[in-house]
Measured scan of single mutants.
Amino acid sequence: VTVDIKGMEYHFDNPEEAKKFAERMAKELGGELKVENGTLKVE
């Protein structure tokens, strides 16, 4: 699973970990979490 945090890509084997990480980063950065082509994106 790929997580894109404002252009920086992180790769996770575990989808649950990827989702938790993306949600935490969205909250910390005040960004919006989206799913695009199987990639979790925070913008």
Rank of each mutant, 00 (worst) to 15 (best):
F21W: 09
D4T: 15
N14L: 05
E23C: 11
R24M: 14
H11L: 08
A26K: 04
D4E: 14
G30N: 12
E32Q: 14
L33Y: 08
V1G: 03
L29A: 04
E28H: 06
K6W: 14
A26D: 05
G31V: 11
L40A: 04
F12N: 00
E17S: 07
K27G: 09
G7F: 02
K6R: 12
V3S: 01
A18H: 00
V42M: 05
K20H: 08
A18Q: 00
A22E: 04
K20E: 13
G38F: 03
I5C: 10
E9H: 14
E16Q: 09
E17L: 07
R24H: 14
G31N: 04
E28L: 12
R24Y: 14
A22P: 00
F12K: 00
R24E: 14
A22Y: 03
D13A: 12
R24T: 13
I5D: 01
F21G: 00
E36H: 11
A18M: 01
M25L: 09
H11G: 02
A26Q: 07
P15I: 14
E17P: 00
H11D: 02
A26F: 05
H11S: 06
L29E: 05
F12W: 01
V42S: 04
G7S: 01
M25R: 03
T2A: 04
E16N: 07
P15V: 13
E16R: 06
G31T: 07
K41E: 04
D13S: 12
L33Q: 04
L29W: 07
D13L: 10
T39S: 10
G31C: 11
M8G: 03
D13H: 09
G7I: 02
G7M: 01
T2H: 05
K20F: 06
G30Y: 07
V1H: 10
N14M: 03
V1P: 03
M8Q: 13
V3G: 01
K19W: 15
E28M: 08
V42Q: 03
N37V: 06
E28R: 06
K27C: 13
E9Y: 14
N37S: 07
E28F: 07
D13M: 10
K41Y: 11
A18D: 00
H11N: 07
N14I: 05
E16P: 00
I5S: 01
L33S: 03
E17R: 03
E23G: 00
E43F: 14
F21N: 01
E36S: 09
D13P: 09
L29I: 08
A26W: 09
R24A: 15
R24D: 13
T39C: 08
V3D: 01
E16G: 06
N14F: 05
R24K: 13
F21K: 00
V1L: 12
P15Q: 11
I5E: 01
F21A: 02
K19G: 04
E32W: 15
E9A: 12
K41I: 13
A22M: 06
L40M: 09
Y10F: 12
K34S: 10
G31K: 04
N37R: 04
T39F: 11
L40K: 01
E36W: 08
V1W: 15
P15W: 15
E17T: 06
E16C: 09
L33W: 11
H11E: 05
M8D: 07
N37H: 10
E32K: 13
T39V: 15
F21Q: 01
L40I: 15
H11Q: 07
E16W: 11
K6V: 11
G7R: 01
M8K: 14
K20V: 10
T2N: 05
E32D: 10
N37P: 06
E28V: 08
K20R: 12
M25E: 05
K6I: 11
P15D: 09
F21L: 01
L33N: 03
G7C: 08
L29F: 08
V35H: 09
Y10V: 04
G30Q: 09
P15M: 15
H11Y: 14
E9K: 15
L29Y: 08
P15S: 09
M25W: 12
A18F: 02
N14C: 08
A26L: 09
A26R: 05
L40Q: 03
L33G: 03
E43V: 15
K6L: 15
V35Y: 14
E28I: 10
G38C: 07
I5H: 03
M25Q: 06
E9P: 07
G31Y: 12
E9W: 12
V35D: 09
M25F: 05
K27F: 13
D4K: 14
E23L: 08
E28D: 07
V42L: 11
G30F: 07
E36V: 14
E17I: 06
E17W: 04
K34H: 11
K19P: 00
A18I: 00
E16I: 09
D4A: 13
F12P: 00
A26S: 06
R24F: 14
K19I: 14
N14H: 07
E17K: 05
V35N: 10
L40H: 05
L40F: 12
T39K: 14
E28N: 05
M8V: 14
G31W: 13
V3R: 00
G30M: 09
F21R: 00
K6T: 08
M8N: 10
E23F: 03
D4C: 15
L29Q: 06
V35E: 12
F12Y: 02
V3Y: 01
K34I: 13
K6N: 15
D13R: 09
E32M: 13
E16F: 09
E43K: 09
M8Y: 13
E36Q: 11
E23W: 03
F12T: 00
E28A: 07
K6D: 15
K27N: 12
L29S: 06
T39L: 13
N37C: 08
K6E: 13
Y10S: 01
G30S: 09
D4S: 15
T2R: 09
L33T: 05
P15T: 08
V1N: 06
G38D: 07
Y10C: 10
N37E: 09
I5V: 11
V42T: 04
P15A: 13
E36G: 08
F12S: 00
K20A: 14
E43R: 07
E9G: 06
V3F: 02
H11A: 05
K27S: 11
E28W: 09
